[in-house]
Design a protein around this nucleic acid. Structure first.
Lengths: 145, 145
DNA sequence: TTGTTTGATTATCAAATGATAACTAAAGAG
DNA sequence: CTCTTTAGTTATCATTTGATAATCAAACAA
């Protein structure tokens, strides 16, 4: 198989994923939440409870900046910090009820877009889709390295 | 098929794609080119020649800001503007030789990462991969809407 | 115990990005 | 020929984001 052609296909594919992700999320009102803050909330939503260091590592934001943004978010009542029982240096973070509601709305919006895109798909096509994502995530887009 | 589960899988998948894309590109030296500027160059590379308006539309940057960033890039000798023969209002943009060299290096780096990830894959797996990307791009990540 | 590492905070600064208004010139519509 | 729209530019401003230094307390290692 032609690896160069496969690479070109992968570039086009990645571009499409980014493009479609943008289109599926752009018309959700962030209010006064900045894109970076939204990314943090999204990460907390799927991984909570998390420490500040985890947010810093996973979202590639320096600790001082992570601390700053997270302070803003807690001040706005979207998430809560609580001490780790084992290590008094650590702080865990989770979404507050307001934060949960916000993220539920965000994910709900995304899911709506998602369903629209797949509205006309047959059962068989959905199975194919799931299988295709499985294949890709097991190989090209695995995060083990 | 459970659509909610499929949605969750899609969210995880999209996250992985973004994550891996970041990891494949992060250690390429941008020099004094900013991320937004890099995105513009990448777009020009695959779509050249393009007008300013096209860049603005596709990269979701307002015309004034597109004009500003493109001016910086042409000043640095990475791309060139030339008048459209048919419409004197339009300006086409293409990469300069330096810009081409830069983007060749960038794509070369990405391709290296890409090959590393697929180094142990069998011929059959590569075929599967290509097919999987085809399936996804034809359904979930099509950009027709 | 002393020194070092880790987790987090605050303060400050610089740079990148986004937004808006005002403007020019060419093209197109009536 | 006007009027409007399109393509692009310049200038300016606010905000967001990234980067760095200095600090603190707890944990850990010698």
């Amino acid at each position: 198989m032609d690896r160069k052609a496969l690479f070109d296909q992968a570039v086009a594919f990645i571009t499409s994923v980014h493009q479609v992700t943008y289109e599926m999320t752009k018309d959700f009102a962030l209010g006064d939440i900045t894109p970076v803050q939204y990314g943090i909330l999204e990460y907390i939503a799927v991984a909570q409870p998390v420490t500040l260091s985890q947010v810093s590592d996973c979202k590639h934001i320096s600790m001082p900046n992570t601390s700053r943004e997270l302070k803003k978010l807690t001040d706005r009542g979207l998430c809560e910090k609580f001490d780790a029982p084992d290590d008094k240096r650590k702080q865990y973070i989770r979404l507050s009820p307001d934060g949960q509601a916000f993220m539920n709305a965000a994910f709900g919006h995304m899911e709506g877009q998602f369903r629209m895109r797949l509205a006309t798909a047959t059962e068989e096509q959905l199975e194919q889709l799931s299988a295709a994502m499985g294949v890709l995530q097991a190989s090209l887009f695995s995060e083990k390295s």
